[in-house]
């Protein structure tokens, strides 16, 4: 039996389990750690797809950078009061039903139509993925790549406006 599916199920379980714990746990620190587990699972899925660049970015940026910042903020801000409040809206069952229905619909259609999606050919050399990605980013996707920088600029300016007490 090939080992890949085993890894896939393990990483998928890690991703989903972590996500579930993120929204159900009470303590914000626990939530953040559960989210790290979920993100690590996604990183593993990237690696299974031989996308080692995304794998590295996921670990360095999300787990290493963003989540550590999250933890800092959680420790600096007093969240005890928030933890004591009700975690769920009264009509959580409606949300759950809608989520399950949408999920079932997506799984049904995906299962029925999976044959219609053709898999991209695997790169000949497994190590070539990062080079291919950079080639694409700077040739075919040059425009959106540059546009993203503008998007990030707007997001930064916006967060500064929102966060600053007094704009001169």
């Amino acid at each position: 039996m090939p080992i890949d599916p085993l890894f896939f199920w393990a990483f998928a379980a890690l991703t989903l389990g972590g996500a579930l714990l993120t929204i159900t746990l009470r303590s914000a620190v626990h939530c953040a750690i559960a989210l790290i587990a979920s993100l690590a699972g996604v990183a593993g899925l990237y690696l299974l797809q031989k996308a080692e660049f995304l794998f590295a970015v996921q670990i360095v940026l999300y787990i290493g950078g963003i989540m550590v910042l999250f933890l800092f903020v959680i420790m600096l801000v007093n969240l005890d009061a928030a933890a004591r409040e009700r975690q769920f809206h009264k009509r959580w069952w409606a949300g759950l039903a809608a989520t399950l229905a949408t999920g079932a619909l997506l799984i049904y259609y995906l299962a029925k139509g999976a044959s219609g999606l053709r898999a991209a050919p695997m790169p000949a050399q497994p190590a070539g993925n990062t080079e291919q990605l950079s080639d694409l980013l700077f040739s075919e996707y040059l425009l959106p790549f540059e546009l993203v920088s503008l998007l990030l600029l707007v997001a930064i300016v916006g967060s500064v406006i929102m966060a600053k007490k007094r704009i001169v």
Binding site: Y141, P144, L147, G158, M162
Partner: peptide, 25 residues
């Protein structure tokens, strides 16, 4: 006329609007 370009353009517009809508801080 490219899905990625359109999506990033849409987000650029949307993020700008999120900020503008909350401009009365």
């Amino acid at each position: 006329t490219d899905l990625v370009t359109m999506f990033v353009g849409l987000e650029l517009m949307a993020v700008s609007f999120y900020i503008l809508v909350g401009f009365l801080r």
